[in-house]
Write a protein that binds this DNA or RNA. Structure first.
Lengths: 334, 334
DNA sequence: GTCCAATAAGACACCGTTGTCATATGGGAG
DNA sequence: CTCCCATATGACAACGGTGTCTTATTGGAC
């Protein structure tokens, strides 16, 4: 029924082992033989069974992408980046959502690896910092690369951007526009990036000689509602901020929305900045000034490192960019 | 190194075939034996190799989800729905992005099936209507279920919502608010849903005795920019509409954005309605009146049908809902 | 007491590849 | 001319499970 390597070998007039050699681009195959095999493969439209290759060989031609992130945009971009690199390599990507707070996290990841024999794993933030996940992967001595890890940098290769510097850059941009009272909305406490962005904000203020005021800093959870709530709290202060920097775009959209609701004009009455540059940033009014995080590129680079033969641990930093759009403006003289 | 069924059989003191029986919940295993095996499985933390099961058996415990949709929100919801049902079934989901306009589409899908031996396939719109994809799946006699197909309904089981009725309902809602000149932004011509929503709009107008005016209908491609362009065209008409119904949320966000840009107040000067109820609908100002499309539920139901033993072709319609939010208001008397 | 069907469990081939080892050939160094 | 190594190919076992067939062992009907 199914076309197998035997059919190919019969048509090409060689042994199955030789077909296998051609398939795996091994040395010691003559050009004539190679061509015969390739022709037979094309003629029969043969695709080797991954199951058989996995069972017999030492690779499975599959890698897993493990994530627990509730931003569809982020996940989508990560999947795209990983997939693009996988496709070049002829490797399948298994996208695996998990819950990092689940007590069975390690079991799930272990089961995934046992069942699928994946050749490697990409960990997307915040799974990058789940101790149970890291321990399990270490225990199995499986190769893995992390995208934007927050802790334990020495553990594995990773790719990331400089969240501290990026938040510093954005804050500095606002300061340069004359703002002195700048509100900040912190991200979800599960994400290490939240803390880093918070620190970048503080560092920029410090360098500019502006006092850090706790009342200008509000907790958030990276979602729209928490941005709105934070905006409400900040704008009800007696001495309210002239700009609000939310540490992701969803929360910035929440700030924007609250501002509209109470009749504030953005950016004339209030400047608003976000972080991530998700497509959302350009789907709101006014379009958000935000930090572009190169998610697709990060995912692509991480996958590339996984495929890289060299087992050395490499840390690769990709460049962020401050995208200035309509939601920020110089401080109005009052 | 790896824990195999042999290790389990040794610990449990039974043959590997008996372990296999327990794993597959077959009949004719005594309770005592079953318990012994289960204990050994737990003790060794054994997960059977999917590769071996696939090769030896008649199932692969994997299904493929094939999509080509550029809306991250939509894909994310579909993946979640499919994944949720798969997890219950102990089956892995292979998420496979494709390009429906690629000349190698059939080859790619064929290769995927040959390589992975998937037990079934879920097709997400608009791959549901790509003739090359359908023909390839038919040829291989592989079971597949479609989510929101636009054509060829008799071919397979499917789940969908009534796009015509939904667009009709939304248009009727606007008419009930007093609007008579209602602009419409058509979706991407690749998607059958575009045509259906367009027809629903027209049907509602017709029933209300309002003339269908081609100048009020603009082409779009389901993205923000095309929504903005359509809004510009519509609002520059001599006799401009008092409401615009964009056939998805991204385009509605574009309409909103253009309206803001030219200083129109929504909904006082212009009502805007969308379609899909993606999270975006609540991340813009004002929040969008839109049609809720039950994407997660559709995906879940489709996967459920795939797992359903009964091979009968079933068509399942899920209910939509008009979500009235802040972007629409009764027509102002002028 | 005999027979048969239902229950319970094992032996063994097989799925479609790759890894290992054996074998054959050709050409350059000595 | 011999020897050896690089090149080229094949035979065969192995990977870790499931399908099929065979072989006990019950227990109820006659």
């Amino acid at each position: 029924m199914r076309v197998t390597i035997k059919d190919v070998s019969r048509i090409a007039g060689v042994s199955i082992k030789t077909v296998s050699r051609v398939l795996n681009k091994e040395k010691y195959v003559s050009d004539i033989t190679r061509r015969k095999v390739e022709e037979a493969v094309t003629a029969l439209n043969f695709s080797p069974s991954l199951a058989a290759r996995t069972l017999a060989g030492s690779r499975s031609f599959q890698i897993a992408l493990i994530y627990d992130n509730h931003s569809p945009y982020y996940i989508h971009a990560v999947q795209e980046g990983v997939w693009n690199r996988c496709r070049e390599e002829g490797v399948r990507m298994l996208a695996q959502p998990v819950d990092i707070d689940s007590p069975t996290l390690a079991l799930e990841i272990g089961g995934l690896i046992d069942e699928t024999h994946v050749d490697g794993v990409i960990l997307s933030s915040p799974v990058t910092d789940a101790p149970a996940a890291l321990a399990e992967l270490e225990r199995r001595r499986i190769r893995f690369v992390r995208i934007s890890p927050g802790t334990n940098h020495a553990l594995t290769s990773s790719v990331f951007m400089d969240d501290v510097q990026a938040a510093d850059d954005m804050t500095t941009h606002l300061i340069n526009q004359g703002h002195r009272r700048i509100g900040f909305v912190v991200g979800h406490p599960n994400h290490m990036a939240s803390d880093q962005r918070h620190f970048g904000y503080r560092r920029a203020l410090d360098r500019a000689g502006i006092a850090y005021e706790p009342e200008l800093v509000r907790p958030g959870t990276f979602d729209f509602e928490s941005g709105m709530a934070a905006a409400e709290a900040l704008l009800k202060l007696a001495n309210k901020p002239s700009a609000i920097f939310a540490s992701n775009d969803d929360m910035a959209a929440g700030v924007l929305s609250y501002a509209h609701r109470v009749g504030l004009d953005v950016p004339q009455d209030l400047s608003v900045a976000g972080f991530d540059d998700t497509p959302l940033a350009q789907l709101v009014w006014p379009p958000l000034t935000t930090v572009r995080q190169p998610v697709r590129e990060l995912a692509y680079a991480a996958t590339n490192q996984l495929f890289c033969a060299d087992p050395a641990i490499v840390h690769q930093r990709l460049q962020h960019e401050v995208m200035v759009r309509g939601s920020t403006a110089p401080l109005r003289k009052s």
